[in-house]
């Protein structure tokens, strides 16, 4: 995969807080190429998560333009946004958000359940995704029995089973010890090398140093 994955310009997002309005993002522009590793850093309240939500099509900016894989997302209808999010974006969360009572297999299947993929193809994709993170042998195990690192690997398998163009990871190493965090970053490295644009939101300096490029947000604006 080559080319520009994310091309956002002049993103503004404001929220109403009672009678006052808070400008969370104030004209942020960002561009991410395929296979690039970008770390978005900043203090709490700087607008990191808001930017990640907009890039992940979970939220819509009030102003500015956002093109994902060359498609202007502003004009998309809700259903089209849902489909584009499903096909082009993978999410990894700090809290893993795996379904503990479901098996590893089912957790990965969750991403495919909304896609129109043939059953046999689904099985191949799930097996490959679990294998890529070293969890194939735990496919039938309930996710609650996994360690923190394994859960994050499972989340990565789920995020990448549809081979997205953009992987958004919100504090992916936030709950992990350094060694396990290193393993997760290695996995993200592999994904970046395969052409996936990896955007990591992080407070963690080692994780930020891991990235090819660091984008720091300060009071809703780019600091550098």
């Amino acid at each position: 995969m080559t080319g520009t994955v994310v091309a956002a310009s002049g993103l503004r997002r404001r929220y109403a807080d009672g009678s006052r309005t808070i400008d969370v993002l104030r004209g942020v522009s960002i561009r991410v190429e395929a296979g690039e590793r970008v770390a978005i850093t900043g203090r709490s309240g700087a607008g990191k998560s808001t930017l990640a939500n907009i890039l992940g099509l979970l939220d819509v900016q009030d102003e500015g333009t956002y093109e994902l894989l060359g498609r202007d997302t502003t004009s998309l209808r809700a259903r089209e946004r849902d489909a584009l999010r499903r096909d082009a974006i993978g999410f990894v969360f700090q809290a893993y958000h795996v379904l503990g009572n479901r098996s590893c297999w089912d957790n990965v299947h969750l991403k495919l359940s909304t896609a129109r993929t043939q059953a046999s193809e689904r099985e191949r994709l799930i097996a490959a995704a679990l294998d890529s993170v070293g969890l194939l042998e735990h496919a039938d195990a309930p996710a609650r029995l996994l360690s923190g690192g394994e859960k994050q690997r499972l989340a990565i398998a789920r995020a990448t089973v549809t081979t997205p163009s953009l992987l958004l990871a919100d504090e992916p190493t936030g709950n992990l010890d350094p060694d396990t965090a290193g393993e997760v970053l290695d996995l993200l490295d592999e994904l970046a090398h395969s052409g996936i644009a990896v955007v990591v939101i992080t407070h963690d300096r080692p994780t930020a140093r891991w990235a090819d490029r660091v984008v720091e947000l300060r009071d809703g604006q780019l600091a550098r």
Partner: peptide, 15 residues
Amino acid sequence: AEIGLRRALGASSPM
């Protein structure tokens, strides 16, 4: 959280 996760994974509101 599960609902949010499903939405993040591509499930629409009608789903």
